[in-house]
């Protein structure tokens, strides 16, 4: 039976092939069969995680909390120099110049990406906006969030900063960011479930040296990463505590 690898559904579409290369790279380096399962729905992925169908996951920080505290997963690595940040943007023609200019009744375009949505809602608090006085439009991906803004069907949109930066120049030129988070300590995490734990040491050593050789660097580049860093148990507990403070 192969072990199962999955990736938080918030990865950029351009990096799908990178995750397949990564899976092939891991199988060769570790000498074990691994099956990669990708999802386009956070809910379906969470359901499979709870049913024990996942052994290794590149998780968003929000799900990392559930994986560590409820399901006994262990955080092993984090992507080097890659924090998760959120951008609130509006159409370039919007009269809003800051978050505080957004009014009750505003329509907010978002995705079901839990970190970005949570951070976006937190950054709206300074305008006295919350679930009770805005209308939320949840879309499949960030390109659709941008299109909804450009068509005038939403007043503001939440983006993962990396996804915002990777939108085409043409689309970005039609939008303006009102605020960009600068948190620095919330990031994705590679976590191993109980069935993967006998391969942990080999996995850590493979990933730590990945950026040192050409094949590894090519795979990383295709995933939009520059390397991996070790994550201690306390590092992951700290990040989970921090996320707990952000969830009401």
């Amino acid at each position: 039976m192969p072990l199962n690898l999955t990736v938080s559904p918030d990865f950029a579409p351009d990096h799908i092939s990178g995750w397949f290369y990564f899976n092939t790279y891991l199988q060769r380096q570790l000498g074990i069969p691994i099956h990669l399962e990708l999802y386009d729905s956070f809910e379906k992925q969470r359901q499979d995680i709870r049913e024990g169908k996942v052994d290794l996951i590149y998780a968003n920080p929000y799900d990392a909390s559930m994986l560590v505290r409820e399901l006994g997963f262990k955080a092993l690595m984090k992507p080097a120099h890659k924090a998760d940040e959120t951008v609130i943007a509006v159409s370039v023609s919007s009269p809003c110049g800051s978050v505080e200019d957004l009014q009750p009744g505003s329509v907010i375009a978002t995705t079901d990406d839990p970190d970005v949505h949570t951070m976006g809602m937190i950054m709206l608090e300074s305008a006295d906006l919350d679930d009770s006085n805005i209308q939320v439009k949840t879309l499949k991906n960030y390109v659709l969030v941008a299109k909804t803004l450009l068509k005038g069907e939403a007043d503001a949109g939440f983006f993962l900063k990396q996804a915002y930066d990777e939108l085409s120049e043409l689309i970005r030129s039609e939008m303006k960011p009102l605020v960009s988070s600068q948190i620095g300590v919330i990031h994705h995490v590679l976590l191993a479930g109980p069935a993967f734990q006998s391969h942990e040491d080999a996995l850590k050593s493979t990933l730590l040296s990945m950026a040192d050789e050409e094949k590894g660097r090519n795979v990383l580049q295709n995933m939009g990463l520059v390397g991996w860093e070790l994550m201690s148990e306390e590092d992951s507990e700290f990040m989970i505590d921090l996320i707990d403070t952000l969830i009401d």
Binding site: E100, I122, E125, S126, A127, D128, E237, L242, T245, L246
Partner: peptide, 28 residues
């Protein structure tokens, strides 16, 4: 600030507190 404080529990023991502060609205 709008402050949130949570106890940090490790292996059932209190080891400290984490405090996260964010921007409050003018009305608050």
């Amino acid at each position: 600030v709008k402050a949130t404080v949570i106890p940090n529990i490790r292996n059932g023991q209190l080891v400290g507190y984490t405090s996260v502060r964010r921007k409050p609205s003018r009305s608050k």
